[in-house]
Nucleic acid binder design. Structure first.
Ligand code: MN
Ligand code: MN
Ligand code: MN
Ligand code: MN
Lengths: 218, 218
DNA sequence: ATATAAATTTAGGTTTGCCTAAAAATTTAC
DNA sequence: GTAAATTTTTAGGCAAACCTAAATTTATAT
């Protein structure tokens, strides 16, 4: 993994995320939109990145990252999310303020810096928005590691599964309007019983600590 | 103080330091050497920076920063030194390892980030090499500019910083067991080469006059 | 004072990343 | 299955930073 420019890392990161939903090659237009550059600029960059060996690309057929390309993308995601943790946990920024600063910090090149930052932060598994942080080998934590009761007010997390799969529990959360893939925004945690006030689909509702322990999030 | 590129900040910082000793305009060659670019590149950049209003420059007459230019330079120095403190104090880097990483971090643009970092670090007045850190208004703390070679036998002085911050020199004095805050007792000065016999931590050792000139004391 | 040397600028190129406008390929619509 | 719409690529340019080689200006030395 040699050195990549600011811009190259941004392209690789964008293609990495876009290729998660679309299973074919990532389209020129999709990249263009995501990076707010013109499609012609993207075409040119794709040719350059292909020559560097970080992606496969044939005219009109979209792009797919190579192993090396994915490694660079994941490393950039890792840096981005670790810095977001730093900004929120150590410098007391709000979770909504940190993205743009992390967009800059994610391009600092020093393997040692990233690894020591991770250690300093106590090896966090998720960033302030609940997104998983890959380890130094590029391995993401399994989402089932994190249940809702381990999250903090201010976080927004995605429902990834349930621990209790009984019909009673599933019916209960379905009635509340909570389903797989939904975003839960944590508003407040009651001190005395650890129940949570949350917002889902714009609706405010209360969840007991027992319910929270049974919802896996990411 | 609008936004400046990575490169512009580096030029302004270099000119700022160079204009501290040379009281006339800073020469093209001096900048070229300090930034390891060719003189012709510097000439071109000086014209551009003049148009931006950050320095005065007339053909063959060298460059001088305007108030705005100096503000940018000092702000960059501030960021550089605060990040060096962070790396040493919080991430346990050695003081000889941090300069290159700080060269990158100093260009992150967020006033808020810099100020909160400073607060997180406890408003340090000096970086790990003993260099003074300007406050958010660009004001430097008063720093002693007394170097060891100006001291006399019999004196005991405290190490406050180094003039030469190269890894070679830092490693050298680290090997000798000399660090920030250490007490140096001057035993004898050799007449013929002005080398010093000193005692640190109870150990006797010899320092060349070149080494002595590069150690700031108080 | 003139010749030589050194410093600086000019001229002409390169690479990275971006743009607009036009052409070509692909997809969709009838 | 062709025509229209959309997507993508090509062609040609531009700005920031860099370079080499050739002038030009300034400094130095006899
Ligand atoms: Mn983010
Ligand atoms: Mn980015
Ligand atoms: Mn430094
Ligand atoms: Mn720098």
């Amino acid at each position: 993994m040699s050195r990549y420019t600011f811009t190259e890392e941004n392209y690789l990161k964008a293609i990495y995320f876009l290729s998660q939903d679309a299973e074919k090659g990532v389209s020129t237009n999709a990249i263009s939109e995501s990076l707010e550059t013109k499609p012609s600029t993207v075409t040119e960059m794709l040719r350059r990145l292909r020559e560097k060996g970080v992606l496969h690309y044939k005219k009109y057929q979209g792009a797919e990252l190579t192993e090396e390309g994915e490694k660079v993308a994941i490393s950039t995601v890792r840096k981005h999310r670790l810095w977001e943790c730093f900004l929120v946990d150590k410098l007391n920024f709000g979770w909504e303020e940190v993205h743009d600063i992390a967009e800059q910090l994610e391009h600092i090149q020093s393997r040692q810096l990233t690894d020591r930052l991770e250690e300093f932060l106590g090896f966090p598994k998720y960033d302030p928005h609940g997104d998983p942080i890959p380890d130094k080998n590029g391995v993401f934590p399994h989402s089932s590691d994190l249940s809702l009761d381990n999250c903090k007010p201010g976080q927004t997390v995605k429902v990834r599964g349930v621990k209790d799969t009984s019909p009673e529990f599933l019916k209960y959360i379905a009635k509340l309007g909570i389903g797989l893939g939904d975003d839960i925004h944590i508003l407040e945690i009651e001190d005395f019983d650890h129940s949570m006030m949350i917002a889902v689909h714009g609706k405010k509702l209360q969840l007991s600590s027992i319910a929270c322990k049974n919802i896996f999030v990411q």
